[in-house]
Nucleic acid binder design. Structure first.
Length: 138
DNA sequence: GCCAACGTTGGC
DNA sequence: GCCAACGTTGGC
């Protein structure tokens, strides 16, 4: 199963707001980048990923799950882009910061480090398992 | 607050 | 279809 990483500035959409949406989840609107779009299109219902706070915190704070697969984003006037629905699954016991990721040689290939501007990124199974562990989850 | 990286736009 | 200008993102 594939894994993902979603970035959001807490000032516009935070983990706490995601949690407050509960089981039904929320629309991940606003992606206007073709690389990110391709990742969104590849997602399957039930796949999990990380929720990352950019700018403020710069840390991975929780696990989210795809509850609805790719469909058009109503907030995009051009109609070219789409989105998925995500719900919060569980928070990390300990947030994993960008510094933590950089300090771990096994995570040196992560897009988070190498292409920091991509807002929706794939994460390998190995990276996913390791970051979960670093965050205090099984 | 600055600036580098990168995507998008628009003139040609 | 190329490329310079511009806007946005995000780490520092």
């Amino acid at each position: 199963m594939a894994h993902w990483l979603y970035k959001s500035e807490p000032s516009s959409w935070s983990w706490d707001e995601q949690v407050a949406c509960g089981e039904k989840g929320t629309q991940w609107t606003g992606v206007r980048n073709h690389s990110a779009k391709l990742n969104l299109m590849a997602m399957k219902k039930g796949e999990r990923g990380f929720f990352y706070h950019s700018n403020q915190g710069k840390e991975i704070v929780g696990i989210v799950e795809v509850v609805k697969e790719y469909y058009p984003d109503p907030t995009d006037p051009s109609g070219r882009f789409g989105m998925v629905d995500l719900k919060a699954v569980e928070p990390l016991k300990t947030p994993v910061t960008l510094d933590d990721v950089k300090a771990e040689p096994k995570l040196a290939a992560m897009i988070l480090i190498n292409n920091s501007r991509l807002s929706v990124q794939p994460v390998t199974d190995e990276e996913y398992a390791l970051i979960r562990k670093m965050g205090g989850l099984k």
